[in-house]
Nucleic acid binder design. Structure first.
Lengths: 126, 126
DNA sequence: ACAACATTTGAGCAATCATTCAAATGAAAT
DNA sequence: ATTTCATTTGAATGATTGCTCAAATGTTGT
């Protein structure tokens, strides 16, 4: 019934999809989907927000600029663990930092984060 | 300099935090943070959005109601893999389903998801 | 130069996760 | 009844992840 249209999946493998139920609908939806590269960026952003410790770091930094060991105290985990997570957040451009002698002060890099979290809060509270 | 104020971390262990740099600031920030239970719910929500395949499922369902094998075709992974992910999304109340004979049609359960993704898109596009 | 301190880093480990495979379920068609 | 088909399920596996520990950096104060 349906032709075999070859498609490239996320691992760049050629996939032959013969098993479509509603080919027309599928094609219409596919046309509206964002590019894979954007979906990938989006999922990476959400991954940054998906860990309890990281989210608490970001919520804390949304209130005030903080040094590493104060963040650790707020999050209730070791300084080393926090430092690892801060590096991840820094690489994903969610936080920025400022050095002052021995101290390093971190802050939120993007106000969008607040908006994203606020929308998610609405969802959680239904 | 600082007193030892005992605090309960996310694993319910008592943690003694003596190593504060700016105790006043830390206390002020802590007062403003959401409850751990909410932070946990939020991180779970973001975890649902943090995987490429799951996000593509949700973006597809934002466009139209779809059956399992059409979702699989759109996402470029096996029907079995999709079914596992759909169960996860169903458990987290992000999608709902409707049976029609052999077929099962899935759809988005909450429009907040769209708003969250839209905000995140702004962040990614800077 | 040395000690103290804030932070970073890398290796290692247990836990979690996304997918695959094979088998099971359940509904329609012959 | 039996076959076919859409979907679900459970076990297994390789990959990723968040943390700990020990050691390294780099800065300040003596």
């Amino acid at each position: 019934m349906n032709d075999c249209s070859n498609v490239v999946n996320k691992d760049n493998n050629i996939v032959c999809e013969v098993e479509l139920i509603d080919e027309k609908k599928v094609k219409a939806v596919r046309k509206k989907l964002p590019q894979d590269s954007l979906i990938n960026e989006l999922s990476e952003t959400f991954k940054s927000l998906s860990d309890f410790t990281r989210l608490k770091i970001l919520l804390s930094l949304a209130e005030d600029e903080l040094c590493v060991c104060d963040i650790a105290a707020l999050a209730g985990v070791s300084v080393s663990a926090i430092s690892h997570q801060l590096r991840l957040l820094k690489n994903n451009r969610l936080v920025s930092h400022r050095k002052e002698g021995k101290m390093v002060y971190y802050s939120l890099d993007d106000e969008h984060i607040n908006k994203i979290v606020n929308e998610a809060t609405k969802h959680c509270k239904e």
